[in-house]
Design a protein around this nucleic acid. Structure first.
Lengths: 160, 160
DNA sequence: GTCAGAAGTGTTATGAAATAACATAACTTG
DNA sequence: CAAGTTATGTTATTTCATAACACTTCTGAC
């Protein structure tokens, strides 16, 4: 994952811990309740792992760390949970990494990421997609989803 | 691939044939010669398959149809060729499909696609990436690559 | 309550996508 | 032509994702 550079162990990230994590999970539960969706145990667990992580997680990272005491999950358990989390906008898949991150921007349905090839950080940002939406419409296109992934080096890794 | 709809066989596409294909391959060869790169046999063959195709091709589609008389290629043969073609800008990988298309826009290094979930068509277009590049720079980011993938329904499939 | 349907989960197995590692061949350039 | 580099051939393996089916848990109508 964060393997393209020589800064192992020097990267500072932003995974949620303790109260912040609990609050985020509770908020997700509340949003589910609003929409008649169920934040079941495996879904909640996968979301928890994503929120606590310092970087995008691969499906098999989630599978490996799913159990409380090291027992892995079965793949479908995790893939189903991810599908749910994506559908509700709690998580995004980063296609160019085959990895997942929790959604950091409330209500953002179109995901855009700045991905650092060095430290693996994937910063979600909110670009103005209006021109692209307009271009799609001009082409007669009915748009359903849109993702933008930018790869490069983050400020921290450039400086080092 | 084009399996999300009920219009099988009704989709019109744009793969190159005959002279057009030959011309495109020749042009690619010329561009390689300019830059001291070698358009070797497997690279040329993979590019030919991409150019002739009516839709994005998966790596294993290429592997299967690689041989003149039905003999498949070995995976590394095709993956190496694809890596080369991407590096030189002759092809793009569409991350959300795990598939490849020939580059249809001369000199476009940043790829953007309108992908139809119905017919599988992937139309390359050239959006204005300047705002995103600016946003990345504002964040201290050194940009290397950028891809945008929009999913939805093309005009033809909406009409049907 | 309880029954029928829908939604979700557990489990086994398999399929699809990509790469590691190492041996061989082909170009280039001094 | 010899040494270095670049590309290919080949075997094996790893990584990523889903199919299929049995079982459980919710939900709402009665």
């Amino acid at each position: 994952m964060s393997g393209d550079c020589h800064h192992h162990g020097e990267h500072d990230h932003h995974g949620l811990r303790g109260y912040a994590l609990a609050r985020a999970l509770e908020a997700a539960g509340a949003r589910c309740a609003d929409t008649q969706e169920r934040l079941t145990r495996p879904r909640r667990r996968v979301l928890e792992l994503l929120l606590a992580a310092d970087a995008p997680l691969k499906a098999y990272d989630l599978i490996a760390s799913y159990g409380d005491r090291g027992e892995p999950a079965k793949p479908p358990t995790v893939y189903r949970a991810l599908e749910f989390l994506e559908r509700l906008g709690f998580a995004h898949r980063i296609e160019s990494l085959n990895a997942y991150v929790p959604c950091r921007i409330e209500g953002a349905h179109m995901a855009a990421f700045l991905i650092c090839d060095c430290c693996g950080e994937a910063a979600e940002f909110e670009p103005d997609f209006a021109p692209h939406v307009a271009a799609a419409q001009a082409a007669g296109y009915e748009l359903r989803r849109l993702t933008l992934e930018a790869r490069g080096l983050c400020a921290g890794c450039r400086a080092r």
